[in-house]
Every structure is written in C-alpha cells, then in structure tokens.
C-alpha cells in the first residue's frame, strides 16, 4: 500500500534515506535470526537427551517415593527428610549471543551418603534418596537448557516478526511510494517543460 505523503522532491529524499535504513536493518535482523536459529538447533540435541533422561529418572524417583511413603507413612518420611543435608554447589556464568544472556551452570552434586539412623528406616528410604539425587542432577542440567531455550525462542519469534514486517510490509510500501513519487515528479517536469516551450514560442511570435 502506498504511503500517504505528498509527492515532492523533499519527501522523495527522506523516503530514500528511510528505505536504505530499513534495508540495512533488514539485513542485520536476518543475520540475527540466523544466529538464533543456529543456537537453538545447537541446543536441540542436548534438550532431547536431557529430556529423555529426566523423564526416566523422574518416573523412577516418583514411584519410589510413593512406595516409600505408603510403607512408612508421610510423617515418618518427613522426619527422616528433615535431617538430610547435602552440599550442592552451583556456579553460573553468562554468555551473550545475539543480545541474549545465556547462562551456563556448573553443578557440583553432593555425594550420596547415609544421613539417618538405620533403625526405623528401610531400603525404600535409601532408594528414594538415591533416585532423587539422580533426578536432581538432571533437573539442574535442564534448568540451564530451559532458561536458554525459553529466552532464545522468545527472541527468535520477535526477530521473525520484525523481519517479516520489514520484508512484507515496510519495504514494499516504501518502494511503491517512491515509484509513485518518481512518476508524479516526472510528469510534472514534462508539464513544466511543455509550458516553457509554449511560452518561448509565444514570446518569439510576439517579437
């Protein structure tokens, strides 16, 4: 659709500048989009692996917990759990890609050790602790991936929209308007040329 501007020389200049800017922006955004897609595809394989692992471990851990609770009772389990302390350490760094801060987490998982009396606890309790430690390890990995993927995907969608808006609306509109202005200016020029010729002819006839 043509923009609603009067076809003048000044407007033509302004529009030309704008169009150059838009084209440059379009190229930049296109590059950004490519970078984001690359980052995401890069993460995709890891996401698949971690996700699968998480599902397996989660099912196992939740099942064990349910069984442990039904054998020992909720309050007993809670008493045992309140005595458990693990020294997990997580440090993070952030890396910037295409304007997004992507976290990298380094996780030091606490080692499995018995932290309660043997009397009054059964093997299911040990199993629960073991399973949940394994689950936590994967959950930590997923935290890193989830944050990065979420942010990257959001940014990619945004960039995609911007690229589309520029490519399909903004740039064609400007091109069309420029073409229209050019035509009008040309015909005006022709008009004035003709008028001048006419005036010149009349002037020579009068003398």
């Amino acid at each position: 659709m043509k923009l609603n501007v009067p076809p003048t020389k000044t407007n033509q200049l302004i529009l030309k500048q704008d169009l150059a800017m838009a084209t440059e922006g379009f190229d930049l955004l296109e590059q950004k989009r490519e970078i984001l897609v690359m980052e995401l595809m890069h993460l995709l394989d890891r996401v698949k692996l971690v996700h699968q692992e998480l599902e397996e471990r989660r099912k196992k851990a939740y099942d064990t917990l349910k069984r442990a609770v039904s054998f020992n009772g909720y309050y007993h389990m809670r008493n045992i759990a309140s005595g458990i302390r693990y020294d997990h350490k997580v440090s993070y760094q952030t890396r910037v890609a295409a304007g997004i801060r992507i976290p990298t987490l380094e996780i030091e998982q606490g080692e499995f050790k018995l932290q309660y009396g043997f009397a009054g606890t059964d093997s299911l309790v040990d199993q629960t602790m073991n399973d949940f430690l394994l689950l936590l390890e994967v959950a930590g990995k997923l935290a890193e991936l989830e944050s990065s993927v979420w942010l990257l995907a959001r940014e990619l969608k945004k960039t995609q929209r911007q690229v589309n808006a520029l490519e399909h609306i903004f740039i064609p509109d400007y091109k069309e308007t420029l073409k229209y202005i050019e035509q009008v200016l040309e015909s005006k020029e022709l008009d004035s040329f003709f008028t001048m010729k006419l005036a010149k002819k009349q002037m020579t006839e009068e003398t």
């Binding site: 909720y74 389990m77 045992i80 693990y86 350490k89 996780i107 949940f132 430690l133």
Partner: peptide, 21 residues
Amino acid sequence: MAYHIIGDQDTVLGYRFAGVS
C-alpha cells in the same frame, strides 16, 4: 543452598530427600 523447590507437600518431600530446601 543451591537448589530450592516450591510445590505441593508430597513433591517437596521427595526433593527434600535430595537435600533440596
């Protein structure tokens, strides 16, 4: 404490076994 969980009491109990507050 590196990990923390917010959830219902049963889920929280499970993660408590891995030393998560």
